[in-house]
Computed example of a mutant assay.
Amino acid sequence: MEPGFCTGTPCAATEAGGGVRAIDLFAGAGGFSTGARMAGVNVVWAANHWPVAVETHAANHPETAHACQDLHQADWSRVPAHDILLASPCCQGHSKAPGKAANNPQHDASRSTAWAVVSALEYHRPSFGVVENVREFMDWNLFPAWRLALQALGYQISPHVVDAADFGVPQHRERLFIVLSRSDRPLMLNLPRRQYVTAASVIDFSAGNWTPIEKPGRAAATLSRIANGRRAHGDRFPTAYYGNEAGGRSIDRPIGTITTRDRWAVVDGDRMRMLRADECRAAMGFPAEYQLPKQHRTAVHLLGNAVCPPVARDIITAIQGAA
């Protein structure tokens, strides 16, 4: 799919939807859209600059009109009217990863994607918006200016920092959700706290490509993490390949954050393997039937960038209840 290519007719999508309508900016794999659908909301338009992401979203949301383009250049007059704007601007320039500092052109450009939210809201003025990002988004040097621009458009701003595990997702994943509302005061949501779902519920110990733990070339740091994990959790547990974890995690608690490249290995006795894409999908809270690219690396990249659908579902449901 070429950049700028649009599938579906916006007006037709709007007329067919009915009920509460949303658009999804920087839609990626479709976690926000899937959560909106769970909440009974019709996603009438979705956009992303990466053709693979648009194709994946379209395969799972065929009723939605799609655009593959740089949203800095969007013509918002061609986007259907909607009640809720959903957006996940690029987070790489705000995260703790190297390159966050200013004067890194790639990360400066990624931070600028948040301004597409302002231009979309300025044109359409929907009643609500939800912007998802890492919590460091609020430390952005231009965040005060971004907030003032939204307030100038008549939006109240209510930040909510949540952990996906509290929404029944089998993963600890802390993210910022900024709720925007055209209301007299900021909309503080009363969000449910659901029972934790364990890593054991998403790991299939009977499947996958296992390799011996003790094999030539295995990194000493990996062996050290596994030894620490065994002492703490026994013979079965997930362990991180990178990050600040020195051991493993109990399979009786949610797994750690799913990232855009393989991070979690599963240890089972004297063998180990990386998490499969379908296990990452389950750990993100996507339905089992959700279609992903066949290439493992691409699927994991999409999932690691996604919004967890159950989190989006509960936030959007709470907004509708408070409206």
Rank of each mutant, 00 (worst) to 15 (best):
A12N: 01
T9H: 03
A277V: 14
V79A: 08
V134K: 07
E55T: 14
P238F: 11
H172P: 01
E279Y: 03
S127L: 14
L142Y: 11
G269M: 08
Y241D: 11
P212L: 06
E2K: 03
P51M: 01
H301Y: 12
M274R: 13
A232Y: 08
P62N: 04
E136Q: 15
G234D: 08
T260F: 05
F237I: 12
A116W: 08
A207H: 11
G248D: 11
A29P: 00
S201A: 14
A219G: 05
A97H: 07
F237H: 12
E63W: 11
H61Y: 08
S201E: 14
Y242A: 13
N48S: 13
E289Y: 08
D24W: 00
P159V: 13
L121G: 06
T257G: 07
W45M: 01
E279W: 03
R276G: 11
H233R: 09
N228R: 15
W140L: 06
Q195S: 13
T64L: 03
R135G: 04
Q151F: 05
A165I: 03
V118D: 06
V134F: 05
F128Y: 15
C308I: 07
T113Y: 05
G321Q: 15
D139L: 14
P10F: 01
V44L: 00
R175F: 03
V117K: 09
L303I: 11
I226E: 10
W210H: 03
Y123V: 13
Q195I: 09
G8N: 00
L150Q: 08
A265N: 12
P98M: 06
R281H: 05
R194C: 10
D262L: 12
A265Y: 11
S119V: 06
W140T: 04
W115L: 10
A120W: 05
A109W: 10
Q156H: 02
A220F: 06
A114L: 08
G40N: 02
E63I: 02
S119F: 08
F286G: 06
I157Q: 03
P238M: 13
S95N: 07
A207W: 05
I157W: 04
D314A: 15
Q151I: 12
R261Q: 11
A81C: 12
P10M: 01
G269R: 12
M272T: 09
H107Y: 10
E132N: 09
A39D: 01
R147K: 15
Y290K: 04
I213S: 03
F137A: 09
L142C: 06
P216H: 11
V266G: 07
I178Q: 02
D235S: 15
A299E: 04
R261K: 14
A74C: 14
I315M: 12
N48C: 03
V41H: 01
H61V: 01
L223R: 14
